[in-house]
């Protein structure tokens, strides 16, 4: 099926089992990621963005359970795979760069061990061939191959994150999911890692699902951006369109809350209040309490995602085509 998109997510629902009943962390999220595309997924902490990412490869541990929806990868239903199929699928088709490579690498194993084991598991190569490939991968991200013998604590934060990227590229997967890949780094190192990602994306023609809370970072990369709020997708549009004409009040708030060194000077505006408690979501729109323009209708009726402009769905009662 060459016409099938690389990744298609339909009405994904993830619930956390808690003593006080299930909590919906991801509520009917749908999106499509085409080959060669970089899709940004933006939201505050607790908006469900990492949960979405981990649900895609089914690596969510208990108490999180995927309770509904479909995840199609190159037309294959990931949620219907057996454990064996799933193990072969993971990393070969979809790899991860996690938030802080500090914790994403086991402290007691060498960098080399952790790259080589994924190669040996999936490709049945000899350890020697895998070692050569691992050395090549480190070179690709600009790290001395002699570092294969190093342990994670011997590397700087930026180097660790680049090792994480090298690891993600080990099997040449069509999709790399980057979950806050630069959050734990300082600004200079952040820039270094981001330009490495941009360079590799061009060179290898990767598709990327880029998850972040930082609008300024995602704008440099993403071809399209989806905005998550309280487990729901509230707006999605091509990056340029989203920055030019944000529709949802939450997106407007996000865009108003970071500094841009380009363009006219303006006053920084935050979003008042804090994210809602997922255990006690109010009726109607989840953003209502923080929204300056909320109406009576917002209190009773939950807005659904409607296509407002071309390729620009939004879930808000206040916007109309």
């Amino acid at each position: 099926m060459p016409s099938a998109p690389l990744l298609s997510v339909e009405d994904l629902v993830v619930e956390y089992q808690t003593p006080s009943g299930p909590v919906r962390a991801v509520d009917a999220v749908s999106f499509v990621l085409e080959r060669g595309e970089v899709l940004g997924l933006v939201g505050e902490s607790g908006s469900g963005k990492s949960t979405v990412a981990q649900a895609l490869a089914r690596i969510l541990g208990p108490p999180a359970i995927i309770t509904g929806g479909r995840v199609l990868f190159e037309g294959n239903d990931v949620l219907a795979m057996t454990e064996d199929e799933l193990r072969r699928f993971r990393w070969r088709k979809m790899s991860f760069v996690l938030q802080s490579a500090m914790n994403a690498l086991s402290p007691v194993l060498t960098i080399g061990d952790q790259i080589i084991d994924v190669l040996v598991t999936h490709e049945r190569t000899t350890t020697r061939a895998a070692r050569e490939r691992a050395a090549h991968l480190l070179e690709l991200v600009g790290i001395d191959p002699a570092r294969l013998a190093s342990h994670p604590h011997e590397l700087s934060g930026g180097m660790r994150q680049r090792v994480g990227i090298a690891l993600a590229l080990a099997l040449d997967p069509p999709l790399v999911i980057m979950d806050e890949p630069t959050t734990a780094l300082d600004v200079v190192v952040q820039h270094e890692v981001l330009s490495k990602i941009a360079e590799l994306k061009e060179k290898l023609g990767l598709s990327v699902l880029f998850i972040t809370h930082d609008m300024s970072i995602v704008s440099q990369f993403a071809t399209r951006i989806g905005v998550l709020y309280a487990g729901r997708l509230v707006e999605m549009a091509p990056t340029r369109e989203l920055f030019r004409a944000p529709r949802h009040p939450y997106t407007k708030g996000l865009l108003g809350s970071f500094v841009s060194i380009h363009g006219p000077r303006r006053r920084l505006a935050g979003i008042p209040g804090s994210p809602p408690d997922l255990r006690r979501l109010p009726a109607g729109c989840a953003f209502r309490a923080r929204c300056a323009e909320a109406t009576d209708r917002c209190a009773t009726e939950a807005p659904v995602l409607r296509v407002i402009a071309e390729d620009h769905p939004t879930a808000c009662h206040l916007v109309s085509p």
């Binding site: 981990q54 490869a57 690596i59 541990g61 799933l86 193990r87 072969r88 699928f89 993971r90 990393w91 070969r92 790899s95 991860f96 996690l98 938030q99 802080s100 914790n103 994403a104 690498l105 086991s106 402290p107 007691v108 194993l109 084991d117 994924v118 598991t121 999936h122």
Partner: peptide
Amino acid sequence: LAEDYVTMAHAKGLSPLRIMFHYAARNALL
């Protein structure tokens, strides 16, 4: 088991035995 490197080991498609002993137990033993 709640550490990121264990989640990562799952995502890498390693066998459960390898994750359990090589990644988790080796660190838990310390």
